[in-house]
């Protein structure tokens, strides 16, 4: 069950994340033709939102396989579920990137690496 779930989640995430970029590459006017030209889509932002959608889908599948949200009392002294931990990770990622843009001069992918590390710590200990 666990292996099936993992394969399903990875496949769904991969399809979701790559679909906008592939669609944009196949037809650059796809957003206009879908009536979404007013949203000023780019493949980069489409991939970004697809990644968030993929993480939500993965969380849904995780919840489906292991219901209950796995609540626990973490290092912050809060009782958090998996959804809370994802929210904290995403919010922390946004602030890490903003902080990097404001204070650091290095490439932005370094902030992304820090955000990933923080997300891992949040999922393990918060």
């Amino acid at each position: 069950m666990s292996a099936t779930f993992t394969r399903l989640a990875v496949a769904a995430a991969a399809v979701l994340v790559t679909a906008p970029a592939l669609a944009q590459a196949a037809d650059p006017t796809i957003a206009e033709r879908l009536g979404l030209g007013w949203m000023a889509w780019t493949w980069q932002t489409a991939v970004f939102f697809a990644a968030i959608a993929a993480s939500l889908l993965a969380m849904t599948l995780w919840e489906w396989v292991r219901p209950g949200g796995h609540p626990r009392h973490g290092v912050l002294g809060l009782t958090t579920t998996r959804g809370d931990r994802l929210f904290i990770s995403l919010l922390a990622a946004a602030y890490i990137h903003l902080g990097w843009l404001a204070l650091a001069t290095g490439p932005l992918w370094m902030a992304s690496l820090i955000a990933l590390a923080v997300a891992l710590l949040v999922f393990l200990f918060v």
Partner: peptide, 30 residues
Amino acid sequence: MTVVNYSLQESFIAGFWDWVGTRHYQDVLA
């Protein structure tokens, strides 16, 4: 989502956008 899309692009003429990445964020934060 639209605001996120706008925040990473520059518009001089309505309907035409140029990708500028995180430049607007850097400008605002500074």
